[in-house]
Design a binder for these strands. Structure first.
Length: 429
RNA sequence: GUGAAUGUAGCUCAAUUGGCAGAGCGCCGGACUGUGGAUCCGGUUGUUGUGGGUUCGAUUCCCAUCAUUCACCCCA
């Protein structure tokens, strides 16, 4: 008799209307900023060949090793739900020969990503990111534009408190020397490191630097710094980026221990951090990835990009911002069959004129309809009862006006309604 | 993947040593038969997450399981 209830998959969730209103506002604000920077939207498939992510993100990363939704397609090939957006963007960039059509591409994407992680606050298996990529420029000006864009995106949605952290990971010319020195140093300190870090020492030594275990932090503080190993070109690149940020008034912290999780980064990396999210304080991150395009089979095209976690940002916004407000609502209340039939064309006319118009489809007393209007936060209620129909008029009730005000409710000829509404709503639709 | 905490009405939470499952909010209706909000009155909602076990009796104790949350890990 009773069937087992089907429920959402772990780490996934429904966004009910109360939530989607927040999402829609945030997405609108983001699209506005991106458009003002000249970035255009790119939409790519959610499903890609598994090899795309293995080759771009890096075989040895956690994402590729254990967090991808990978399965066999019906033809036997291996496909994966995208765990991030840059790989697909670069694939699309190459597949469409974009670099032959334009020297610089400014693209953004906004959509769903999938990672099979253990869910917790601000971390879901299906989550949304907005990301931007600037392809075709190696100049520091590109890094500065992109970081500025990331900051403006986060600010525009209402997270002005976010702080910026900056680092440089060097390039293939200077990083190996640093890596070697770091490993040598860490080997000596090995016994002071936590167990996972002792493993990382071999697989991904840079990651030891941002381990949160106290012992490891002590070791990391004394560790050789990447910034001291940058070659002259990487160093001047970093200085130029810093100068650019400073001239725009962007405060930042140089964090030589910030390491990014994806293999493809070089030179500039950055993160935007915010409070209130526990361990998930990074709301946006990105950097330069000059080698990636070539790594995926294209020409040597330099690029910078960033991605911001929208679920995470929204979680914080709900603590900082007022809920979004829609346009003013006009509620049409009618009485009886005749009232209903008179209301229908009125409702239609108002909606076609651009108003947001609600009415109750359930039969009910006028009182019940007024209650409904109040619950719907209607600004005006148009009453169509027998008297109004007789007179070819409509009563307009201002729900916000105080009881007893002379214009609380006015009778108005149908022909004169548009003018009155314009007055009442102050030209706002 | 590892560790811990929590699951009672739509929501927030009570329920004494193990003894009839409750309140507030919300929702619906009435007081006011053509008028919302405030107030008052009334009504509505449960396999106490699920499955076992102990017991005369389990929301309470035990085991398992699922879900959620937090932290680790990782990352946006």
């Amino acid at each position: 008799m009773s069937v087992e209830a089907i429920q959402v998959l772990k780490g996934m969730r429904d966004l009910l209307p109360e939530q989607t209103a927040w999402w829609q506002r945030m997405e609108r604000e983001l699209a506005g900023v991106l458009d003002r920077f000249g970035y255009q939207e790119l939409r790519t498939p959610l499903l890609e060949p598994t090899a795309l992510f293995k080759r771009s993100i890096g075989e040895a990363t956690d994402i590729v090793e254990k967090e991808m939704y990978t399965f066999q397609d019906l033809d036997g090939s291996s496909v994966t739900l995208r765990p991030e957006g840059t790989a697909s963007a670069v694939r699309a960039y190459l597949e469409n020969f974009t670099w032959k059509k334009e020297p610089i591409s400014r693209w953004y994407y906004l959509g769903t990503m999938f990672r099979h992680e253990k869910p917790q606050k601000g971390r879901y298996r299906m989550f949304s990111q907005v990301g931007a990529e600037l392809l075709g420029a190696a100049e520091p000006a590109a890094d500065v534009e992109l970081i500025d864009l990331a900051v403006e995106c986060v600010r525009a949605v209402g997270l002005s408190e976010a702080t910026l952290e900056l680092n440089s990971l060097g390039c293939p010319a200077c990083r190996p020397a640093y890596r070697e020195r770091l490993v040598a140093y860490l080997r000596v300190q090995r016994s002071a490191l936590c167990e996972p870090c002792q493993r990382r020492l071999e697989t991904n030594p840079l990651r030891v630097l941002d381990c949160k275990v106290e012992g490891c932090q002590k070791v990391a503080e004394e560790a050789p710094r990447i910034l001291d190993f940058l070659g002259p070109e990487c160093l001047s690149h970093l200085e130029a980026v810093r100068a650019g940020l400073e001239s725009m008034g962007h405060a930042y912290r140089l964090n030589h221990r910030m390491v990014r999780g994806l293999d493809y980064y070089s030179r500039t990396t950055f993160e935007l951090l915010t409070g209130g999210l526990g361990a998930q304080s990074a709301v946006a991150g990105g950097g330069r990835y000059d080698g990636l395009v070539a790594q995926l089979g294209g020409p040597e095209i330099p690029a910078v990009g960033f991605a911001a976690g929208l679920d995470r940002i929204l979680l914080r916004l709900a603590e900082l911002r007022e809920p979004p407000q829609g346009p003013p609502i006009i509620f049409v209340a009618s009485q009886g069959e005749a009232g209903w039939r008179a209301a229908l064309p009125l409702v239609q006319r108002l909606r076609r004129a651009g108003h947001k118009v609600l009415s109750d489809v359930r039969a009910g007393s006028l009182k019940a309809q007024l209650k409904r209007a109040d619950k719907d936060r209607a600004r005006l209620v148009l009453v169509l009862g027998e008297e109004e129909i007789q007179a070819g008029a409509v009563s307009v009730k201002d729900m916000a006006a105080p009881e007893g005000a002379q214009d609380k409710q006015v009778r108005c000829a149908l022909a004169d309604l548009d003018r009155l509404l314009g007055e009442k709503l102050g030209g706002v639709k």
